[in-house]
């Protein structure tokens, strides 16, 4: 692995909801004690089912929300400690592509205005001659500059979202399920575009997804999250999973070839409420390998440094 661009150190985020004079607020740990590094030029995938905290992690990395505990360093600068003004400057080096291409573009702005926004937000004049080039980079015709988002298809909107993220030549792009709300054929186009842009511009990606197949296709390393915590980091896309949860996730993927399909073993048991996590391993209630030990103590992420897993009974 090359020099790390992002270092995440014991990051936690707690959300409170409700609560009043008489009621205790409900506390939820969206992200629990996550430590990760992302190398320069790496594509790090984060997978997990909905509600596992992967989008919260993405927003913490960009400090769109403040962590409850822990640190994030970007290229040696601790962004969790930056002043608002310094953070705004820092934002030109990191960008985000959002899940929903429909609500991530202002309905009242033309594409030209959308693509000028990164410059205006940084208090710079927008070089108008860059506009055709920015659109061309994501495969959109220059004639679209005066279109409004509602005149575009979902795939086209997501291309605009990518062009906006790349406007200031960032080092890091956080992709928060960029293909989740697109058709499968459009998904492939967007992924091909992202891969091409990475090769040309030397970008680093943090790729959030719930689609393990997509992540295995696109990413260098894969982080598997379950209820806010990292349970396994796969060093490459071919390594066999060691955590029972990762195993179950991979088992639940359909192979496109019917001859290669096998019976899916569904997970049984209830997913615990994130508001009231049981002691021990959070996955124990659904794990076929769980023992009493798992229900008493929380397994730490350990084992080989290249392929850490948080399990007492790894595969």
């Amino acid at each position: 692995m090359t020099a790390p661009l992002i270092q995440i150190d014991r990051l936690s985020k707690r959300f409170q909801s409700g609560g009043g004079i008489f009621a205790k607020p409900r506390v939820m740990m969206a992200v629990r004690d996550v430590s990760l590094t992302i190398g320069k030029g790496e594509v790090l995938g984060v997978v997990g089912e909905s509600g596992c905290g992967k989008s919260t992690l993405a927003r913490l990395v960009l400090r769109l929300i403040d962590p409850t505990a822990g640190r994030v360093s970007f290229d040696g600068t601790e962004i969790t400690a930056l002043s608002p003004a310094a953070l705004r400057k820092m934002r030109r080096r990191m960008a985000m592509v959002f899940q929903d291409p429909y609500s991530s573009l202002d309905p009242r702005h033309t594409l030209a205005e959308v693509l000028a926004e990164p410059f205006r937000a940084q208090g710079e004049p927008f070089p108008p001659d860059r506009l055709p080039e920015m659109l061309a980079a994501v495969g959109l015709p220059a004639t679209m500059a005066s279109s409004y988002p509602h005149q575009l298809s979902g795939g086209q909107r997501q291309r605009v979202g990518i062009a906006r993220a790349l406007a200031l030549n960032p080092d890091l792009v956080v992709l928060d399920e960029p293909t989740a709300s697109l058709d499968v054929s459009i998904q492939a186009q967007i992924i091909a575009l992202l891969a091409d842009l990475r090769d040309r511009l030397g970008l680093t990606y943090l790729f959030i997804s719930h689609d393990l197949g997509l992540v295995r296709y696109f990413c260098d390393r894969i982080v598997v999250m379950y209820l806010g915590a990292v349970v396994e980091v796969l060093p490459n896309t071919t390594t066999a999973p060691r955590h029972p949860y990762t195993h179950a996730l991979m088992q639940s993927n359909f192979a496109p070839d019917p001859a290669r399909r096998r019976a899916i073993e569904p997970l049984t048991g209830e997913i615990p409420s994130p508001f009231a996590l049981p002691p021990g391993c959070a996955f124990a209630s659904r794990c076929p390998r769980a023992s009493d030990h798992c229900r008493r103590e929380t397994p730490a992420l350990g084992g080989e440094t290249a392929h850490p897993v948080a399990c007492f009974h790894p595969l």
Partner: peptide
């Protein structure tokens, strides 16, 4: 709560920018 407001923030937009370019026009 719209994503485009979060997108503007992720680009480094300040309060005035978000208020006058996104919130009030909409």
């Amino acid at each position: 709560g719209e994503t485009f407001i979060e997108a503007a923030r992720s680009l480094g937009a300040g309060d005035a920018h978000i208020l006058f370019r996104h919130l009030l026009p909409n």
